[in-house]
Simulated assay, not measured.
Amino acid sequence: MLSKIQVQAAQALRAGLGGLMLAISLPAAAANLANGKYLYDAADCIGCHAGQGSSALPSGGLGLDTPFGTFRVPNITPDKQHGIGSWSELDFKRALREGIGRQGQYLYPAFPYPSFARLSERDMADLYAYMMTLPPVPTANKPHELKPPFNWRPLLFFWRTLFFRPEPDKAPAPQDATWRRGDYLVNAVAHCQECHTPRNALGGLKTSLAFSGNVGGPDGQNAPNITPDKRTGIGEWSVADIQNLLKTGMTPDSDLVGSGMKAVVRGTSRLSEADLHAMAVYLKSVPAIAVEPKPGPAGKASVKAP
């Protein structure tokens, strides 16, 4: 005859096995494809990964000129041979979170994984699911054209040691929900620092000068100071002004943004008014940094507010 303790142990075992079988039988949470497309647009994936010509698919091939050489943007359509069609969701998340490719290789930080590492698990899953619905394009990837020694990929181990800090789970910031949403959109999704923060000689972000502008960035483009400094940044702009620029590409002076920012606005213009407002609130809250514009041709300032 079983003792009371033995009976309780058997009941606990059956309950545990039943719960395990239930968990195995239940499907994973369905991906939110609408959220995936929303993130795809907000991150301006097509801005960097567009195919040759006017392709609206991220089949890659364009060159990104930098002081280290030319990076050739890869095909990220779900083509199984040339794109990411054979990548699992775990492969995809590892690339975003750790900067590690499907074959275990270090990815160059021209792909902004230091920012994407902050994306939530749910958003990564939704983005992956949406991208797998895009038409596959059988366009072969082109090799990077980098200067020695930057063409030796294993050296990225040292770059990562110096400059890559994967974002750990941490307690929510003490600011309100609007500010936290803006922080997430600006720093993780839209990865604004990747263009608007200056870099050192090795390509690491100078985080002490966050958002203060970057002269001679990728493709030689100059990203302006977007801190709230009133003289050299956008301190005279209101939250509504910033929100309107992200929506329409128009500055308070009725100028239209150009170059790389034009492509960014194509993505941010599709965001909800609440998210645009959150981004503007966050940008108004960052430390104001005064950075004198460097002279450009004929002594003209080479960087100004957008």
Rank of each mutant, 00 (worst) to 15 (best):
Lys142Gln: 06
Pro143Lys: 11
Pro143Ser: 11
Pro143Phe: 06
Pro143Met: 08
Pro143Glu: 07
Pro143Asn: 07
His144Glu: 00
His144Arg: 04
His144Lys: 06
Glu145Tyr: 09
Glu145Trp: 00
Leu146Tyr: 07
Leu146Trp: 01
Leu146Gly: 00
Leu146Val: 04
Leu146Asp: 05
Lys147Pro: 01
Lys147Leu: 05
Pro148Gly: 04
Pro148Asp: 14
Pro148Tyr: 08
Phe150Arg: 05
Phe150Gln: 06
Phe150Cys: 06
Phe150Pro: 02
Asn151Trp: 00
Asn151Thr: 01
Asn151Phe: 04
Asn151Ala: 06
Trp152Val: 10
Trp152Asn: 02
Trp152Glu: 04
Trp152Tyr: 14
Trp152Arg: 07
Arg153His: 01
Arg153Met: 00
Arg153Glu: 12
Arg153Ser: 00
Arg153Gln: 10
Arg153Thr: 08
Pro154Ala: 11
Pro154Leu: 11
Pro154Gln: 13
Pro154Tyr: 09
Leu155Glu: 08
Leu155Ala: 10
Leu155Gln: 06
Leu156Asn: 05
Leu156Val: 03
Phe157Trp: 14
Phe157Ile: 12
Phe157Asp: 10
Phe158Val: 12
Phe158Glu: 01
Trp159Asp: 09
Trp159Leu: 09
Trp159Thr: 10
Arg160Phe: 00
Arg160Lys: 14
Thr161Cys: 03
Thr161Pro: 00
Leu162Cys: 11
Leu162Pro: 01
Phe163Asp: 07
Phe163Met: 03
Phe163Val: 07
Phe164Asn: 05
Phe164Ala: 05
Arg165Asp: 09
Pro166Trp: 07
Pro166Asn: 06
Pro166Asp: 03
Pro166Leu: 03
Glu167Ile: 01
Glu167Leu: 02
Pro168Tyr: 04
Pro168Ala: 01
Pro168Gly: 06
Pro168Ile: 06
Pro168Asp: 05
Pro168Leu: 01
Asp169Ala: 11
Asp169Thr: 04
Ala171Trp: 07
Ala171Pro: 02
Ala171Glu: 11
Pro172Glu: 15
Ala173Trp: 05
Pro174Phe: 13
Pro174Cys: 14
Pro174Met: 12
Pro174Gln: 11
Pro174Thr: 12
Asp176Ile: 08
Asp176Arg: 14
Asp176Lys: 13
Asp176Phe: 15
Ala177Phe: 03
Ala177Pro: 03
Thr178Tyr: 09
Thr178Gln: 15
Thr178Trp: 02
Thr178Arg: 13
Thr178Phe: 08
Arg180Pro: 00
Arg180Gly: 05
Arg180Met: 01
Arg180Val: 04
Arg181Met: 15
Arg181Ala: 15
Gly182His: 11
Asp183Met: 14
Asp183Phe: 13
Tyr184Lys: 08
Leu185Tyr: 13
Val186Ser: 08
Val186Asn: 03
Val186Glu: 02
Asn187Trp: 01
Asn187Ile: 03
Ala188Phe: 07
Ala188Cys: 12
Ala188Asn: 04
Ala188Asp: 00
Ala188Gly: 11
Val189Arg: 09
Ala190Glu: 02
Ala190Arg: 02
His191Asp: 09
His191Lys: 10
His191Thr: 10
Cys192Met: 06
Cys192Asn: 03
Cys192His: 06
Cys192Lys: 03
Cys192Thr: 02
Gln193His: 13
Gln193Val: 02
Gln193Arg: 10
Glu194Lys: 10
Glu194His: 15
Cys195His: 13
His196Met: 02
His196Ile: 06
Thr197Cys: 08
Pro198Gly: 15
Pro198Thr: 15
Pro198Lys: 10
Arg199Cys: 09
Arg199Asp: 07
Asn200Ser: 15
Asn200Pro: 11
Asn200Cys: 14
Ala201Met: 15
Ala201Val: 13
Ala201Trp: 10
Leu202Gln: 13
Leu202Ala: 15
